[in-house]
């Protein structure tokens, strides 16, 4: 649980920083984006059991809320692929460092910006739909230890 929570916080912070290209500059933006893709895969691996259970029950028996939640997650996954692929195709730092030169494409650049913008709303939805878990875990790992410390003092 704590591992999940730690990775989620890391993902969130990396996403916010990576979205701010003016702040990071292109070099950090691209490498951080690559790192973000790796952390997303770890995030998916940590939720593997849930994913399998939801996929199995999706067309059979699933409460409306859970179905909506999993639909958002699927959309988010597709968006992640859109951002990553278009990011690789418009990359100037990583791809160049590998010695590859890709032709300039307005479409991939447009898609990269658009899908990153959709990602903001999809992440907002993803967080809102898991809000109860976020609040309870924050309370368990952050607030309760502090309360205990306060009680001891």
């Amino acid at each position: 649980m704590l591992k999940n929570y730690g990775i989620d916080i890391l993902l969130f912070l990396a996403f916010i920083i990576d979205m701010n290209v003016h702040f990071t500059g292109l070099v950090i933006h691209e490498w951080l984006g690559l790192g973000l893709a790796v952390i997303i895969v770890i995030h998916l691996l940590l939720h593997w059991k849930w994913m399998v259970a939801i996929i199995k029950r999706f067309f059979v028996k699933l409460p409306g809320r859970e179905r909506f939640k999993s639909l958002i997650d699927i959309l988010f996954f597709i968006d992640f692929i859109l951002v990553s692929l278009s990011g690789i195709l418009v990359s100037k730092v990583i791809i160049l460092s590998l010695g590859i030169t890709l032709p300039h494409s307005v479409f991939w650049r447009w898609l990269h910006i658009q899908s990153a913008d959709w990602g903001i709303y999809l992440l907002g939805l993803h967080l809102a739909l898991n809000w109860r878990w976020i609040v309870s875990t924050t309370k368990r790992y952050f607030l309760k230890p502090f309360q205990k410390l306060g009680g001891l003092a």
């Binding site: 290209v21 702040f23 709303y121 907002g124 967080l127």
Partner: peptide, 14 residues
Amino acid sequence: GSFKTLFPMTMTIF
């Protein structure tokens, strides 16, 4: 830059 991301996200969550 962070505000541009955080504001729409927070609004969506809210």
